[in-house]
Design a protein around this nucleic acid. Structure first.
Length: 755
RNA sequence: GGGCGCGUAGCUCAGCUGGUUAGAGCGUACGCCUCACACGCGUAAGGUCAGAGGUUCGAAUCCUCUCGCGCCCACCA
């Protein structure tokens, strides 16, 4: 027996060495795996953001995915797990800006676009290296030779190709729309990136001519010249749509127009409101319906514009009190409700309070009909007229994508139904620059083109800088960058070489599984489905497995400000990666939040040591050269083999059904409380005083059970099991990671049990 | 306002399509350094399965309502 077994298991001593052995073996690469029946399994790693370090959520993701991957690999499939990182545009940029401002009191504008991007790249690189190290520490069996980054050259080409195709199909357009403007980060953000916070503020009832209107934001009211009410509201039936009235307002007399619109809730307040179409989505929509004027009141930095009269140039935050004071002085304040609770929108990527604005931006049209060029999907034919929304819905509705747990399918549909055109342009610098070039002014006036539109093209979509054939004027590129989810939406295939028709793309796409947290179902999963169905006419993956959030032992969300975070690296350092992995898997069904405590991790470290000691016992009780010849088995030993077969089947079944929580729970229990507590105890007398035949039977069975347990445990606890495997005298594979999974064909079970 | 999830021993959770005295781990108490393991072994305490009503021969498990916790969505002027 190897002397290492004489000491307790020390994860720190072996984990790095074991990982190196795996990596050097080449078996992380699918090429190395024989797959006679051609079966394959592929999955992409949800690329972690290069904004720092990995947290427990990442650890859970890595653990779950590695279990699936190792199981499939051991089951004989050619297996690819493709790793990478995400540039996370806005999150990374704001992080670097924050650090820079803290250290040097400089903003990105002080140092310029080029220098700033150099710094972000440096930060991203450092962050990337940390992340890669952490992924390895967790034991993730990813194929590093295929590692990708959402902002590298290959992905940039994919992004430009996708953008151009969508533009040519009319699915990407530039237009004026209501966007979520972040005055702090000076960029738009998507609807999904907004978080809502409750805030208690005074609610003002203001006299607006003969009406009383309510508002929590008097500072936006300067330009309000439309007063809206429900057409069925009998209280205001004397007023007619389009009627104008004169009234005294903040900065003097104005003329207001009555508008009747069903968007008004008669129950709310007085049932009358004025609108600010430039800074409110509902108001914007009313204005669109009635073709009303829209005026900007607040600029991009939150400063009031000249329309505010004497308040122009003031920041909205400061101006509010003075405006209310003036309204009071003019007798326009009817009453104030001091404790009004409403929600304010905050940019969740480290930004500020969102101010809706009308801006010219790039959008993806989700409701526009177009003929899909090619479709390999069931139920959608090539050339069929579809919309992006329809494609997204169809992929799941038709069962071609299964979401686990299935209750998220409903949530997914609901999200699609409420989806508006996707604003994809951001005014930040870090990210894929929009591949659009402007020639302004055009050198040949439209009138002189003689209908040959190729003569001078004002807007060119191209990955490279175009040149005008007719004049020396250079094209200038759109200064904006793309929403980070645009590039991550391409992830399952951009990582496989698309737009080229590579062997990898043919072999590994669609992927089999997409595993991620339910919190990014919309951000990412939905957008991958959108991009893939549209660009490839296929689904990006067959199954979506959603894991929950990792919370602390009290069920609270882990956060730095609460100080309740548990660092995965620290847990690995103290208890080993196997224990850390198991603590995130046992008792964590799909879609349920996981509550974690250090004690839980410690408990599983003890389990790792238990396995180690089982191995020690078995190895010290069998001949040094374990005999592969199967002896006649005692009745009891046969019964244990039977029990093992049953439990293996159970475990395989649960893994195949993505119930890693149940599989690991059962395994833990069987290995410890059946194999160790019962079988090993029962067998001791026979090993001591039994006949040679009895000893042979017990020894053979002990070894058989041990090796199968190691195999079953390996996906969950790859390090200890591999380390023990290395010390075994006889085995059916040099490395446990590629040892055959102990599935016993049903016809063999009977045979096995009765020999 | 709409939707979803959860509420089972101190803590974290199993209990599938309803069926013998409701389970596990951690923790606790007590006893054991028994020649695989003290990162261990053994024993024990601890639950009106959130509450009420209903379906049923029988419910933690199905239905209805109530309470509590959490989450998601929505154009809360």
């Amino acid at each position: 027996m190897d002397e290492k077994f004489l000491k307790p298991y020390d994860p720190k001593k072996s984990e790095d060495t074991v990982y190196k052995r795996w990596e050097e073996s080449g078996f992380f690469k699918p090429e190395k795996t024989d797959s006679p029946d051609g079966e394959r399994f592929s999955i992409v790693l949800p690329p972690p953001n290069v904004t720092g370090t990995l947290h427990m959520g990442h650890a859970a993701m890595l653990a779950i995915e590695d279990i699936a991957v190792r199981f499939e690999r051991m089951s004989g499939k050619q297996t690819l797990w493709l790793p990478g990182t995400d540039h996370a545009a806005i999150a990374t940029q704001s992080k670097v800006e924050e650090i820079m401002y803290k250290k040097e009191k400089k903003t990105r504008h002080d140092i310029g676009r080029e220098e700033f991007l150099r710094r972000v790249d440096a930060y991203a690189k450092e962050s990337h290296d940390t992340i890669v190290n952490q992924i390895k520490k967790m034991g993730a069996s990813v194929d590093w030779s295929r590692e990708a980054f959402t902002l590298d050259e290959a992905r940039h080409r994919a992004v430009n190709t996708a953008f151009k195709k969508m533009y040519d199909d009319g699915l990407i357009y530039r237009g004026e729309g209501m966007v979520n403007w972040d005055p702090k980060l000076q960029t738009t953000v998507s609807d999904d990136e907004i978080e809502w916070d409750e805030e208690t503020v005074p609610f003002y009832y203001l006299k607006y001519g003969p009406f009383i209107i309510g508002t929590s934001r008097p500072e936006t009211k300067f330009g309000d010249k439309y007063v809206v009410m429900h057409p069925d509201d009998t209280r205001y039936s004397e007023y007619t749509d389009g009627q104008t009235i004169k009234l005294e307002w903040i900065n003097g007399p104005i003329s207001a127009t009555i508008i009747k619109d069903t968007a008004i809730d008669m129950e709310f307040g007085t049932g009358v409101m004025t609108i600010t179409p430039w800074h409110d989505r509902t108001d914007f929509e009313i204005a669109e319906r009635h073709d009303l004027d829209k005026e900007q009141v607040i600029n991009e930095r939150g400063i009031l514009l000249p329309i505010a009269g004497e308040f122009a140039g003031e920041h909205i935050k400061k101006a509010r009190a003075r405006i209310v004071e003036k309204l009071r002085a003019k007798g326009l304040v009817d009453k104030v409700d001091e404790k009004y609770v409403h929600s304010i929108a905050i940019n969740s990527r480290g930004g500020g309070i969102i101010e809706p604005q009308i801006k010219e931006q790039w959008f993806v049209a989700v409701n526009k009909e177009f003929p899909i060029a090619y479709s390999a999907m069931d139920g959608i034919a090539s050339g069929e007229t579809v919309t992006l929304k329809k494609l997204m819905r169809h992929a799941v509705e038709s069962g071609q994508i299964k979401i686990i747990p299935d209750r998220f399918e409903k949530i997914y549909y609901h999200w699609i139904d409420n989806l508006r055109d996707w604003n994809i342009s951001r005014q930040i610098w870090y990210g894929h620059r929009i591949p659009v070039w402007y020639h302004d002014p055009i050198c040949i006036p439209l009138a002189d083109r003689e209908d040959d539109i190729s003569k001078c093209i004002p807007i060119v979509v191209s990955g490279t800088k175009p040149e005008c054939k007719f004049c020396a004027a250079a094209y200038t590129q759109d200064p904006d960058t793309l929403d980070t989810w645009f590039s991550s939406g391409l992830w399952t295939f951009s990582t496989l070489g698309w737009p080229d028709e590579t062997a990898d793309l043919k072999r590994f796409h669609p992927t089999d599984l997409l595993e991620t947290g339910y919190d990014i179902l919309f951000f990412w999963v939905a957008r991958m489905i959108l991009m893939t169905t549209y660009l490839l006419g296929d689904v990006p993956f067959r199954t979506v497995y959603l894991h929950g959030l990792v919370r602390d032992e009290k069920g609270k969300k882990m956060s730095k400000s609460l100080g309740n975070t548990i660092d995965p690296l620290e847990m690995i350092e103290k208890y080993g990666a196997d224990a850390t992995r198991l603590s995130l898997v046992v008792g964590a069904p799909p879609g349920n939040d996981i509550s974690l405590s250090e004690g839980k991790v410690r408990g599983y470290k003890h389990f790792a040591n238990k396995i180690w000691n089982i191995a020690r016992f078995v190895l010290s009780n069998i001949p040094a050269e374990a005999n592969s010849e199967k002896p006649a088995l005692r009745k009891e030993d046969n019964a244990w083999i039977e029990s093992l077969v049953l439990v293996s089947e159970d475990i395989s079944k649960h893994i195949a059904a993505y119930r890693f929580d149940l599989a690991s729970d059962i395994l833990y229990h069987w290995v410890w409380h059946e194999f160790a507590d019962k079988y090993i105890e029962e067998v001791k007398p026979a090993l001591k005083d039994g006949t040679d035949e009895e000893k042979a039977s017990v020894q053979w069975t002990l070894y058989a059970v041990l090796t199968d347990c190691l195999k079953l445990l390996h996906p969950f606890m790859p390090f200890v099991t591999e380390e023990i495997w290395a010390g075994l005298p006889r085995k059916d594979a040099e490395l446990l990671m590629i040892a055959p999974w102990p599935t016993v064909p049903s016809d063999k079970i009977q045979e096995m049990l009765h020999t």
